[in-house]
Write a protein that binds this DNA or RNA. Sequence first.
DNA 1: CTATAAACCTGCTGGC
DNA 2: TGCCAGCAGGTTTATA
Length: 294
Amino acid sequence: MPELPEVQTTADDLSRKVVGRRIVGFWTDWPKVVRSPSISLLKRKIRGLKIESVSRLGKNVVISLSKGYLLVVHQKMTGHLMVGKWKIQRSGGKQEAKNLLGGSLDDKVNQYIHAIFHLDNGEMVALSDMRKFARIDFGKKEKVEELLGMQRLGPDALDPKLTSKKLGEIMGSRKKSIKQALMDPAILAGVGNIYADDILWASRVHPARPANSLGSAELGKVLVNMRKILKKAVRLRGTSVGDYRDTAGEPGGYGRKVLVYRKTGEPCGRCRTPIERIVLRQRSAHFCPRCQKL
DNA sequence: CTATAAACCTGCTGGC
DNA sequence: TGCCAGCAGGTTTATA
């Protein structure tokens, strides 16, 4: 599941691999993947635009194009962008993307390719997404930014301007649990289930604590651990607990470093107490019942 | 305004 | 072995 570190890895890879290239075509077999505008408009307007830069905002991959256009991809749960060369084959009602470059871009990933941007050097940027939740927005910079603004995105989790005072302001009025608040993109952008559990474990804060019940010292710890853990995960090129892959189809390295996520019953790394799992608003949360008191 | 639930999807797991 | 309910989770949309 791509969270901030996975999306950062994707954006960095794309920066290295496709900046300077021109987009010459677009293909999809899943019309819903394009949220805005219409597919025909996207196909017509994107042709010939040059990729100028790639960055990340929250969990969005933001691709700046020439002539003031912007392409925003949200990979949601199982989506990942890859760079390579594929051939789309149709057999019966099924179509299959076959990788022509070899390497780690195996068939398991390729069979879920639902959108392809063709580049002027013959390479492609492909969006593989088993569960078809990913979404693409395209348009003039102002228009897409307005669209992103509609999400009322909170500050980015790695925004250097985010102080513990500001975090206190954001959390102080929230009655929902600290874990839900950390994961709510309208409050804070970039943190998902895996890192939220690890950040709270490192901060010794119980995930079900109301956000507005945390003291300033606790919020300070949450901020420090959030930065430490997210930056470490970026260095390790993300987590592959689910089926996240980088743009070359390789898994991330944080998976082996996960502290508590999906470690129910395993000993806590600090006190050996078995890790517990609870359900918070239909989502699982993992924590140490001894280190993280309510 | 806040908060919650359902919807979007499909592969995998576990129970029978 | 096969079927099927239930689970996984980021975000949007609908509802209270």
